[in-house]
Amino acid sequence: MTRRRGWGSTLVGVLILAVLLFPLYWMLNVSLQPSGSAVRTPWIPLDLSFDGYATALREQGGNLVTSLVVSLGTVVVSLLIATPAAYALARFRVRGAGVVLFAILLSQMIPGIVVANALYDVYSDLGLLNSVPGLILADASHGIPFAIIIMRAFLLAIPSEVIEAARVDGAGQIRTFVAIVLPMSRNALVTAGLFTFLFAWSDFLFALTLTTTEQVRPVTLGIFTYIGTYINDWSSVMATAVLASVPAVVLLVVAQRFVTAGVASGALK
């Protein structure tokens, strides 16, 4: 709409945002308070302390690294599997393409707990419990359907002349894909990659069900075990929470346009 409003609306907008983001402010506030007994927390961290972060890094640093490794691995696996599939679904007249698309949509309805329940046994037999590859494969189930859906939507928009021209020049199917299609799809790849990373980073269910020891423990599970016990040091819990939120904040700041595009296309395609 072109009806422009003035700074009055901006003020209201800031107020709405302040209410909605208060919990995140509170997380930051508590994380910067001196640790110790859980007395009522001041509204502003005047007595600035980084003890919480020191404890968090000491106790959860390894878990943060695990999360990072698992998330990066999930991005690689998801894009390797999803990108060619998205291309095939967008470009080729393969028999059964409709069925595959339908299955992808349907897969979104399958509760994670059902997947975990069945995978546990298989993982136990294959020795994939408590392993990074096991978590990567399971976490890719959040990323692959989503990545296929948004990349297919993007690839549909590439003019077929471009692809046909390459084919006429004698490029094979694979060469066309690697040399022409992939470079053109950078934005879609970035969007899919970012979201796959976030999904894997946020995963809690598979971390909870497919790991049984502290050997391989993503930070989400680390936080859960923190809050599961009696807590007398909330500043280090909140410091861990802040550290676990860093990827989301970084992505929003660095790649805001990709993120907004991803939310919109993920829901409507």
Binding site: L17, P23, L24, F204, T220, F224, S245, V249
Partner: peptide
């Protein structure tokens, strides 16, 4: 900025 609560891990 409004998107932030949706992007951070649920367990956080």
């Amino acid at each position: 900025l409004l998107l932030l609560p949706w992007l951070i891990p649920l367990i956080v």
